[in-house]
Simulated scan of single mutants.
Amino acid sequence: MNVRLATFLSLVVAIAVSLLVSLGSTSLLQIPTFILLGFLLGLLVAETPAASPLQELCGLSSRHPDKVGLDIVHSEGTTDSKTAKADLDQKVFYGLQHAFLNLELTGWWFNMGLWDKGRGMRFQDACKALVRKVTCDLGIDEESHILDVGFGCGDQDVYMAQLYRPAQITGITIEPIQHHVAQELIKRTELPGTCVQLHVADASYLPQFLKETPSVFEELSSKAAPGQSHFTHVVSIDSAYHYNTRASFLQNAAQVLEPNTGRLAMADMILAKPAPTCALGRAIFNAVFGALNVPVVNMKTMEAYKQDLVDAGFVDIEIECIEDRVFSGLANYIQDQTGRLGGMVKPGVQWSFWGLHKGLLWLDRSKWLHFVVVKARNGASHHV
């Protein structure tokens, strides 16, 4: 078993034990069951050669799909394994190439979405609904200059430009590949009246970014206020919990916002229950969030979260918990989508989404995390 698979299995076991600890009412005698389930999940999800014989031994898969295909190709007289694999890929491509004609790629949206209570909502529509929820009632108009921190692949910037037609949207992301994809989207999209600039930068160093990028305020359209040197709005949708750290991001957001009138708006995640204090519980807690690329210091309860906003200089703070329309809605969509795709999805990928589906349902039922929409006004006179 390779290191990658072993690491994954260890993580699954850690998650299983953390569920046990957080649920509290579950008997300690059930720990072996949780660990066994975690091990089986690891075997199902692992898309590696080392996992394949274990899958067969445990009866989790009759034969790995690639092995079945290779057996078929071998029976036709091909003996070289690389050639056989290439032949198999060609056969699969030919058999399913019409799928390309049925795919409707309407964007590269990547947030958890705000879902209707009933099923049937499209992923892109749920993502747009979350953007509307975060940005409504902020006073965005044709003179606004929005800083979008963590813009994903640019779809939300296009959508905000179409909704509000602000003078300018400046976006930053720490992911170069997302920046590239978003740039291509902006190039082929007409956004009359809105200038969109996208940059690769760190959310925790906003003042430094502005000093190093003076063009941010030099290319404003004629609708913007002359001589503007601060943003009217800072938006962060479903990404602030990844920042290292979120508290420093809030401090810097206040510095780059217009004093007294600038508005902050975020979709974010925080703890609904205090973090474990015992050594084992804390170790598991740290391991889980570390694996999710979420700095543990960002996982705070509502009271500590509000205090970070106050310490940064924000006033008129509004925090709304909306997890009842986030976690279960995304979980149901994942289940429906994998069902629609059927056999076109590799078993490893399908089981990965199965695990995500179950994890989201558990979050919805356990009430362990809050998914919040935050709106606040900059009340301090900061200067970059």
Rank of each mutant, 00 (worst) to 15 (best):
G193T: 13
G95N: 07
G120Y: 11
Q335S: 11
E76I: 00
L264T: 04
Q335Y: 04
I334K: 02
I140F: 04
Q307L: 14
A279L: 14
S236C: 15
L41C: 07
S352T: 15
D71Q: 08
I237K: 02
G107M: 03
S239Q: 05
A99L: 15
L138Q: 14
F314D: 04
G262L: 11
D268S: 06
D268N: 13
D238V: 11
A247V: 09
S215T: 02
L330C: 13
L11P: 01
D89Q: 14
A225R: 10
D157A: 09
W109L: 01
W108Q: 12
T78A: 02
L280Q: 13
G154H: 06
F327P: 08
T26R: 05
V21Y: 07
V134D: 05
C321I: 09
Y164Q: 01
I186S: 00
A86D: 14
L20M: 09
V256N: 09
K67F: 05
T277H: 09
I334M: 12
S61F: 05
E142S: 13
A126C: 10
M121A: 11
I322Y: 11
Q197S: 09
D268P: 03
H98K: 12
N286V: 14
C136P: 00
C153V: 04
A51L: 09
Q168D: 07
V256T: 10
N332M: 06
I334N: 05
G118V: 03
F371Y: 15
P65T: 12
D364H: 15
P207C: 08
G329I: 07
H230N: 09
L257Q: 09
W115Q: 04
Y205D: 01
T33K: 12
